[in-house]
């Protein structure tokens, strides 16, 4: 029983982390219909900020983290994506690949290829007991932060005028512009929010690993892509559900697989996702917008 509860907490924590990544990707996809592969580099940038500034007081470091990553996200949109916005989805997708690759290599040029390590916040690596279950502070923070983010994002999208405009743009961008939604502003705001999500994700990720390399963002973001596709492209709730399903299934596989097969956990995971997509090609949640595109 305790093993089960422990597993639930682990699954929630992992799913939460995936969800923060997946939301950043799904949000951009919802307005631009583009998968932003460079989202992982936003996370990498954040990780570098945290590790390189390990001596700076935590609060200030977090402030710098948010400013830098949100700034990078907005700048990325302005410099790379806006000029090719009219050029079609394929061009945008390739652009996002190019930006991702460029930043990965820029990181090698600037910081060298070696792994750098540092502590983000040592308190997070301690744990506490909740009844019979031992919970890592970091996992508790991850779960709580994700809940807060989900509530905040939902309120933003449902209750604010710009959130309403964003939902309209996600459904039908052209018509949204016809009713006065400013395309540049909505997309910039979406990138800003995805930058904020990437900053938080990089904090949680780096706190866990304590290291940074030029590809630290790629692995987890790969999982987030899978989660978004599993949940159904273009739906934020789908991305979150996909992330938690993915988190849960990885934890289950981790516990159930025989020891010698555990290194192949992700292969089993992707096989399971593949089966889901064969049965439900649109993902778990099919939105009107994604249906219209097919």
């Amino acid at each position: 029983m305790n093993g089960f509860l422990q597993g639930v907490v682990d699954a929630l924590a992992l799913g939460s982390l995936y969800a923060i990544f997946a939301l950043g990707i799904a949000l951009i996809f919802s307005v631009l219909k583009m998968i932003n592969f460079a989202h992982s580099e936003l996370v990498t940038i954040g990780a570098f900020v945290l590790i390189l500034l390990a001596d700076v007081p935590l609060i200030i470091r977090i402030l710098i983290l948010v400013v830098v990553v949100v700034g990078a996200a907005v700048l990325m949109e302005r410099v790379a994506f806006r000029p090719v916005r009219g050029a079609g989805q394929t061009t945008m997708l390739i652009t996002s690949f190019a930006v991702s690759y460029l930043l990965q290599n820029a990181a090698i040029l600037i910081f060298g290829p070696d792994l750098r390590s540092g502590s983000v916040w040592s308190v997070l690596n301690e744990s506490f007991m909740l009844g019979p279950v031992r919970i890592l502070n970091l996992n508790a923070l991850t779960i709580v932060l994700t809940l807060v983010l989900l509530v905040a994002l939902t309120l933003f999208l449902r209750k604010t005028s710009i959130g309403l405009q964003m939902r309209a743009a996600a459904e039908d961008f052209t018509t949204a512009r016809l009713v006065g939604v400013k395309a540049n502003r909505i997309i910039a705001v979406a990138f800003g929010i995805s930058g904020l999500l990437a900053a938080i994700a990089s904090f949680l990720l780096t706190a866990q690993t304590g290291v940074v390399t030029n590809t630290i963002g790629v692995q987890v973001v790969l999982m987030a892509f899978v989660a978004t596709i599993l949940g159904g492209m273009g739906s934020l709730s789908g991305a979150v559900i996909g992330a938690f399903v993915l988190g849960a299934v990885s934890v289950i596989l981790q516990q159930l697989l025989p020891l010698e097969l555990r290194p192949f956990r992700d292969a089993f995971l992707f096989a399971a996702v593949f089966v889901v997509l064969v049965v439900r090609p649109g993902g778990l949640i099919v939105t009107r917008a994604s249906r219209a595109r097919v």
């Binding site: 005028s161 309403l164 405009q165 939902r167 309209a168 459904e171 039908d172 052209t174 018509t175 949204a176 016809l178 009713v179 006065g180 939604v181 939105t287 009107r288 917008a289």
Partner: peptide, 18 residues
């Protein structure tokens, strides 16, 4: 081209947003 996933009131609120 009404926004199908939004409510009637939300569609109108969008129209009034400017």
């Amino acid at each position: 081209h009404i926004f199908a996933s939004l409510t009637v009131v939300e569609n109108l609120a969008l129209g009034a947003a400017t």
